[in-house]
Amino acid sequence: MDPRSARSDAESIWVNRVPEPRVGATRVHLDLRLADADPAAVLAAGARSVREPVDKAHWWVLADPEGNEFCAFPPPTTG
């Protein structure tokens, strides 16, 4: 499904695959708020883990299939 066809007024972001390899440094860094307490769904979609949460760095650092890193934060805790 093309995310641009979603029937929602919410902001959206998506990632498209391109045939060209990355040349040079990554120009954008994304932070992702996970829907679940862990990044299992993102990993199943093709990301790889670069760093697990540790100490005060309570988020994962993940990379897309081309090695572009992004941070993945667990959902906010309630209570």
Rank of each mutant, 00 (worst) to 15 (best):
R48D: 13
V42M: 13
V54P: 02
A47Y: 12
E20N: 05
G46D: 08
K56R: 07
A63S: 11
I13P: 01
C71T: 03
A37T: 08
M1V: 07
V50K: 08
R7E: 08
M1G: 04
P65F: 02
H29C: 09
G24F: 06
A35N: 07
A57S: 09
D55I: 03
R33M: 05
R27Q: 15
H58D: 14
G67T: 02
E11R: 11
W60Q: 09
R4H: 07
A47F: 15
L62D: 05
R4L: 09
H29E: 11
P53C: 11
W14A: 02
A63Q: 11
D2G: 02
A72S: 00
V61M: 13
R4P: 05
L34W: 01
N16T: 02
G46F: 04
D31K: 00
H29N: 07
P21A: 10
V28L: 14
P21K: 10
V18C: 05
D38I: 12
N16L: 02
A41K: 15
P21C: 07
A35P: 03
V15T: 05
A72Y: 03
D36S: 13
D2Q: 04
H58K: 15
G46W: 04
V61S: 10
R48N: 13
A6H: 08
N68K: 00
R22A: 01
A41W: 14
R48V: 15
H58L: 12
D38T: 15
S5A: 09
D36N: 10
V28A: 14
D36L: 10
K56L: 10
W60N: 10
P19C: 01
V54R: 07
H58Y: 11
S12N: 04
A25L: 13
W59Q: 08
V42K: 04
D64H: 02
D64A: 00
L32Q: 00
P39A: 07
A41R: 15
V61A: 07
C71Y: 01
K56T: 12
P19M: 05
E69G: 06
S8R: 12
R51W: 12
A44K: 15
A25C: 09
M1I: 03
V50M: 12
D9M: 05
A72P: 03
A63H: 09
A44V: 13
G67P: 01
N68I: 05
S49L: 15
A10M: 03
P21G: 05
P21M: 06
A25G: 10
D38Y: 09
R27N: 12
V54L: 14
A44H: 14
A6T: 01
R4T: 11
R7F: 04
D2P: 02
G24T: 09
E69L: 06
W60E: 09
W59T: 07
D2N: 11
W60I: 12
S12K: 09
D36K: 12
A57F: 14
R33E: 00
L43T: 12
V15Y: 03
R51Q: 15
L32K: 00
E66S: 03
N16K: 06
E52W: 14
P19D: 08
F73T: 04
V18H: 12
A35D: 07
P39D: 05
